[in-house]
Design a protein around this nucleic acid. Sequence first.
DNA 1: CATATTCAGGAATTATGGTACCTTTATTCC
DNA 2: GGAATAAAGGTACCATAATTCCTGAATATG
Lengths: 141, 141
Amino acid sequence: MAGLFRISEAVSIAFHGMGLLAVRGARMSGHEIANAICVSEAHLLKVFQRLARAGLVHSTRGPGGGFEITEDPRAVTLFRVYEAIEGTAECGVCLLGTTTCPFGRCIFGGETERMEKEFLDYLHRVTLADLSAKDEGGTNA
Amino acid sequence: MAGLFRISEAVSIAFHGMGLLAVRGARMSGHEIANAICVSEAHLLKVFQRLARAGLVHSTRGPGGGFEITEDPRAVTLFRVYEAIEGTAECGVCLLGTTTCPFGRCIFGGETERMEKEFLDYLHRVTLADLSAKDEGGTNA
DNA sequence: CATATTCAGGAATTATGGTACCTTTATTCC
DNA sequence: GGAATAAAGGTACCATAATTCCTGAATATG
């Protein structure tokens, strides 16, 4: 398994691709983006198709075409990118999927919910502009 | 989508099933456990098959048989249960799955890694005994 | 106008997770 | 001791989601 967060490769591609577009500040073709972040071009294209439908990027066909961010990167949160790919992110839903835990109360005492909220806050707080700004050199997480 | 953490239904069944066994302190059949926590008996059986192979429960066949926890519930962390189902939980791995981020550094600045570690710490810290003890009435998370 | 480039959309494929069913083991009751 | 029953083990199947592939449409350029 890959990680503890439910971040699909699609979302990761969206984060990295959008981050790259934000840094470059110019239109880039799907081919260029995929090469730059070392992912499958087919998959990236599919991901950007969704981002385009969500209005987060504008796409242009034909030679010299490609994708460009439609808004100021400082206004685009990771959450919006996440939602464009995965649909609505629910938080605080019982892991069992039942509305009432068979135990009568949540056996985790609400702590998992707290941590999910923390992650959600992070997605809401961080913008595409932040992705290029931060340079504290964390390892790959 | 269900939640932000990569908790499959299988892991959730394992947590709840083991929690129940810990509370009861006695052998229970798969049928009983599945009924108590309102999940598919077929799936629960498969999950417990893995828990048995991992040595976390002892299984007994035949009438009156079932599953029982092999160790003191205070000694069994959620992490061990998690690993028995999902395999090794990696933390701090780049969301893209590459060993070196194409950006040269992690674009998330290590914060996602920090949050993953926090969740991992939680799994390491909480034992089956804790699941039944906590009673602060959180909502279903 | 022909051609090359680039994205759009849907079809086909693959992978994953969950389900159903049959087999084996053990107990109980006659 | 044998038959019936209760229970877990194992395997094969199915459903859904994720990924790739293929064809078509749009646009720029010579």
